[in-house]
Amino acid sequence: MAPSSSHVPEVYYDSRFKRTVHKLLPGQYTVVSGRDMIMTLLGSCVSVCIRDKNLGIGGMNHFMLAEDNRENNSNWIEMYDMSSTRYGSNAMELLINGLIKKGGNKNHFEAKIFGGASLISNISLIGSKNIALAKEYLKCENISLANSDVGGKFPRKIFFIPETGDVYVKKITSSETGIILEQEEKYSKNIKTDNAEGDIYFFD
């Protein structure tokens, strides 16, 4: 099965921002236009926000690479035989395709990366591997990185407004930290058993 990144995020209205908010869970991605905005809670997971500067549309993904035993010193492209690498690069491709489908032009894309914190010492490497993959992917696709707020020990709550390009990073309450840990633990169990492999159809 392919990663469960196609589930539709929950949508609510935020009266402070006066905007409709799409709330992303780990493994999801979405692209919005108009005044809509996207929010997510990040622990060691990474979210990449990509925006078409000319159109004012933008999207976000939210992913984590499954833990693996190989060193992170080679380029991710040479590690595509690993399910974790496939999973991360697919999260990037889905987001970029989502933008192109809504009329986005890659030459006008601008990206920002968030997350990848080291919340628990024994998975501290995961955060930095997630950040490295996102950065290398964007570099390879020639998409400029406008800004990033990554790493550290603390989780994040981010709000992305594609219309303006603004991203607000908020401090997290202790109850939200609990939610993040629970979400990410559940998600990381799922992707460990997920082989990151789509179906193959033969037409004759």
């Binding site: 035989d81 496939r86 697919n90 491709e93 990151a196 492999e197 789509g198 193959i200 159809y201 004759d204």
Partner: peptide, 9 residues
């Protein structure tokens, strides 16, 4: 002839 869904092994 064939349709492969990404990500692929």
């Amino acid at each position: 002839k064939v349709w492969i869904v990404k990500p692929f092994r």
